[in-house]
């Protein structure tokens, strides 16, 4: 069955709207940021919705206060602002406080990577994986399409603790069939390969799919794993899936070598007996003001399909894989 492409935020917010009908403990906060589905939430649950205004520090603090009163809170804003503008509020009132109190706060950040293509670096977000993973107790979720995004609702409703959901701002083509994603594992194996496995998160899963298909045309079969839970994935299962590969490649729409997915995987593979070779692909460490399409920006940053293709080939040949 053909699944219609949908924005991650609308798919996820639709699930919140449904849950709010039977669960009176759900509260939704926005920092003056909307979506078509949010209009339904605002209209149908005015007593459990508040727009705090352009005030992310207060967004987090109010969310923390509501959570200590037993509410399941969803707080919603643009990704760089909900992570970096109020980082210490999240550290003190969510990460620290949840050490001693049961709190369920879910931060929804929209605009992962370059997804606000023409808005430039203030609205783009290449640091959030590193920053939010730096805090113990925070769970970082980075879906690749709206099907994964909406599947994460149960994880958010059923597990306490602070979480950060990193959503793309664009409508992306769906990768999965509705309801086909096992969110408990925290990752999904999209293809099996021979010697090399690409491990990607968010938008880069789409790029990795494209690259894997191109490589297959050239007779090279690479594996592909979509890692969407960047802190709570099933590590035993992931070890099992990647243990036979000679090389692993991380792909993220975030700065390269600065503590993101690449650091996560680099640390992770130290525990593997097979000790695969490792290559990290991410955004070159510089802020870019030049305008372009997402594809053009990606190629410039070293994460577009052409760049990835060439990096992967170089990686394979230099290690004789």
């Amino acid at each position: 069955m053909e699944i219609k492409p949908r924005a991650m935020r609308d798919a996820f917010l639709e699930q919140i709207w449904i849950a709010m009908q039977s669960n009176e403990k759900i509260f939704f906060l926005s920092a003056d940021f909307g979506s078509p589905v949010l209009d339904k939430i605002r209209k149908d649950f005015p007593n459990r919705f508040a727009n705090v205004g352009i005030a992310e520090q207060n967004l987090i603090n109010v969310a923390a206060g509501l959570a200590t009163e037993g509410f399941t809170v969803f707080a919603y804003a643009i990704a760089p602002f909900i992570t970096m503008r109020c980082y210490e509020q999240s550290r003190v009132n969510l990460a620290l406080l949840s050490e001693v109190r049961d709190m369920n706060v879910n931060l929804i950040g929209v605009g992962a990577g370059y997804s606000y293509v023409v808005s430039g670096p203030t609205h783009q977000c290449y640091e959030d994986i590193t920053l939010m993973r730096a805090m113990p107790n925070f769970r970082v979720l980075s879906p690749s399409d709206h099907v994964v995004a909406e599947s994460l609702i149960d994880e958010c409703l059923n597990n306490t603790g602070p979480k950060y959901l990193r959503f793309d701002a664009q409508i992306l083509p769906p990768i999965y069939e509705q309801g086909s994603v096992n969110t408990e594992a925290g990752f999904s194996e999209i293809r099996e390969g021979d010697n090399v496995c690409l491990i990607a998160t968010g938008y880069m899963v789409h790029t990795a799919m494209q690259v894997a298909e191109e490589l297959e045309k050239e007779g090279v079969k690479v594996g592909l794993i979509d890692l969407f839970d960047l802190s709570g994935f099933d590590s035993a299962l992931l070890s099992e899936k990647i243990k036979n590969y000679k090389g692993l490649v991380s792909l993220e729409e975030a700065f390269k070598g600065r503590g993101g997915l690449d650091a996560l995987l680099f640390n992770f593979i130290q525990e593997l007996a097979s000790k695969p070779k490792f290559c990290n692909i991410g955004v070159h460490s510089q802020y870019e003001f030049e305008l372009g399409t997402r594809q053009e920006l990606h190629e410039k940053a070293g994460i577009g399909p052409v760049s990835v293709m060439s990096t992967v080939k170089d990686f394979m040949s230099s290690h004789d894989i």
Binding site: N58, G65, E69
Partner: peptide, 24 residues
């Protein structure tokens, strides 16, 4: 009730608590 010491947090959190109590 809360984590203290880093300044400027208590009132915002208290505001969320007050909103929650009203709601309940």
């Amino acid at each position: 009730e809360t984590v203290n010491g880093s300044l400027g947090h208590g009132l915002g959190v208290g505001t969320g608590v007050a909103l929650g109590l009203k709601n309940k």
